[in-house]
Design a binder for these strands. Structure first.
Lengths: 212, 212
DNA sequence: CAATATACCGACCGAACGGTATGAATAGGC
DNA sequence: GCCTATTCATACCGTTCGGTCGGTATATTG
């Protein structure tokens, strides 16, 4: 079971490098337009290594979605938006955080799972489901805070915490699409402002104290 | 300038048939995964005909986006949601209409422009811009009604009619992504309900009288 | 009725595609 | 110190890709 050579200590992490290359390249070009050779070049591995670690290009797609789910889970778990005492503040801080990480390059800030799911939803159920799990698992991390904020205010009825959590992801995914179509990340931030406003209106929180 | 032959009267519409095939196939499989041969097969034309009408696959992509823009413009212009006297009612009727045309198959109800833009935003500026024009031109058709509804209620300040019109498209595009990822069109309808609720909260319209 | 332009047809091209077969290097278990 | 499993490397395969090209049929123009 040999991987790290004395002369080549970075040996053995070909799989990880391929997953990282997949994350970056697929976000930039899409899944179908990304060739196996593209990924091997970006990860500086050979085709033999690729098909040693992944049985097919589709299998790489599934693994990339799972890797995406794991790394983003860790990233958001460690983010500062969990700090506020009030649950609604945490939800609003989440939206503000999502807004703050939008940079100039869509390949940097957009979502691998959303991009791939949109592309392969009909042609590759395995990849689509892996992307769906990533997306809805992330959405679910908001549910507890939303639920608590609803209880605090005695809200209930037309909509559920789960539904609002999913809607948050809808707006975020849509924001990525619109930002790409308009070639302007500001369009994404603009919609996150509307999402923030929706939350405040739902929970009766004034807009004046919004963090800028 | 000959096209309709006596024996083959459907001759001459190869271009249109290719554009319709592009609309259907690209919505189902994406742009990169759709081959020129796929389109020729679906449109029952030869490769010679394809490259007679379109200089390249990219040119077909641009033409498909423009064709999409024209046909959807006509479709929405003729839709019944323009009937109400009150401008806010027209906006809410638009959202209800968008919800009503969501069927079981994403390839039927999703947006060609959004799908293509997400895929080619970095690799093909020409297609991306054609998709962007389609999207934002459609968004702009909502602006006048939103503006009028704002005037009616003396609303102004944090957000503009143009911004809210764009946000509407953000939610719709996001709804398509989430519906595909979750393999469930109901997820899209759910987010349109949240968008409806946001509009009512913004404009101080009660939710009880919502059409079902 | 010849000239011309349009609308196609279908065989073909080189490159790139996803995937495979074989084998070398390495390190841990015994 | 040998065996075995793992991690790659390299060369190659058949297919499909976007695109080209010479040719044909038809309708319009003068």
């Amino acid at each position: 079971m040999p991987r790290p050579t004395k002369n080549e200590p970075e040996r053995g992490d070909a799989r990880t490098r391929l997953l990282e290359a997949a994350r970056d390249t697929i976000r930039a070009k899409g899944f179908a337009a990304t060739s196996v050779d593209d990924l091997c070049r970006a990860a500086a591995v050979t085709k033999g290594a690729f098909f040693h670690h992944f049985g097919s290009k589709d299998a790489l797609g599934v693994a990339a979605a799972e890797h995406w789910s794991e790394t983003t889970s860790a990233f958001f778990a460690g983010a500062p938006y969990h700090a506020p005492d009030d649950p609604l503040d945490r939800v609003l801080a989440y939206i503000a955080f999502r807004k703050s990480i939008i940079t100039d390059d869509p390949a940097e800030f957009s979502c691998l799972a959303g991009t791939m799911a949109q592309e392969v939803h009909a042609s590759s159920p395995a990849i689509r489901d892996a992307c769906g799990r990533s997306l809805f698992r992330h959405a679910a991390t908001l549910e507890a805070d939303i639920e608590e904020a609803m209880r605090d205010r005695g809200l209930s009825g037309e909509w559920t915490a789960a539904s609002l959590a999913r809607h948050t992801q809808t707006v975020i995914q849509g924001a990525f699409v619109i930002a790409k179509a308009g070639n302007d990340p500001a369009l994404a931030r603009e919609s996150l402002d509307h999402l923030d406003r929706y939350m405040r209106l739902l929970f009766g929180r004034a807009a004046e104290d919004r963090a800028q």
